[in-house]
Structures are given as structure tokens and as C-alpha cells.
Amino acid sequence: MTDLNPTRRTVLCAVAGMSVLPDVPQNALAQTPPSHTALSVTLRINGADIARPIEVRTTLLEFLREQTALTGTKKGCDQGSCGACTVHIDGHRVVSCLTLAARCQGHEVTTIEGLAQGDVLHPMQAAFVAHDGMQCGYCTPGQVMSAVALVKEGHTGTDDEIREWMSGNLCRCGAYPNIVAAIRDVADHTPARG
């Protein structure tokens, strides 16, 4: 192909030359009897199975806070704008307020309560205490969960990189510099990946 101009014509050509498109939507569109607006779910949270009857519209955040005693995960905005409800699903950080509990079945959920080994704090938790990476503490569980994921993702090259990759977690008390210091401390004591 000599025409490098990415125009509509190119797209159509490229698509025409494509192999077969993914086959999935058939699955999504087949007619099946609808289920109800309530159902029973079993979620694997911090290594334990928790079964509850719920309404389908229950978010993971509400499931944790209202249906179990796992209130460490916080509701700050309920709209994905603050990060206070950050948990890990299969090791990835997500906001639990925009996650339907029913869609978490078959996945591993880790909350702040699942981080420490008994009484022994996770290194990130210990670093937050040592660097005072908190004040009121309400955003703290979400900050810690995000920070643990951030180190695993490898975004600790510079302090600016840490700041950028922690910007999904608001802290109104303004503990940001101490949070960055805590993460820097952990990153410097964590063997590089690979």
C-alpha cells in the first residue's frame, strides 16, 4: 500500500481486507429467559468465599460496606471521581463504586483488610504510618491499595511519575507529599521487576 494518508478510504480498504471479525455478539444477542433483579452471589474476597443474596444493582462497594463487615473500603463520591473505594480485582486496582458485585463472581477481590498478614502490616501500610501519609484516614485505604498496585505496575521511576499515577486518589487533607514519600520508600526497598 503506497497511500499513507490515513483517510476514510484507507480504513475501508483495510477493513475489506480484514479476516473475519470477532464472533461474539451472537452470544450477547441470543434470546434467553431474563433472570431477576435479585440473585445470590458468591464472591471471593481476601481469599474467602462470601455468599449473599443481593440486588443486581448492588455495587461491589455497597456489597462490602452494607452486606459484609468490610467497611475499610470507603465511599467518597460513589461516582469514580475520588478513588476512596479502590480495591484490587485479580490484582488490578479498580474503583469498587463503579463495579457491580454480581460481575465479580469468579474473580479475586482484595480489599484493604486483605493486605496485612495478621498483625504484620504490608510494607506499604507500614510506610504510610512511618511517613504520615494520612490525616483523617478516610481516603487512606484507597490510597494504600492504589499505591500497592502502582509499585507492582512499575510506575515509580520518578516522584512525578508516582504523583501522576496516584492522581486517581483524592486526599482532601492534602497528605500527598507524605504519600509520595511513603511510596518512594517502599519502591526503593522493593526489588525491581523482571
Partner: peptide, 23 residues
Amino acid sequence: MHAFQLIAAGTPGAGTTFIAGGT
């Protein structure tokens, strides 16, 4: 939030939507 049914497959039409990331 209005109560709804979550289905793996269904008939599209008024009152039906798809969810992917859900954000």
C-alpha cells in the same frame, strides 16, 4: 438507580443496554 436485570444475552430493544467496563 432503577432496578434491572443483568443478563449474559438478551433481546435488544428499548430499555436494554450493554455493559462493558461500566464506568
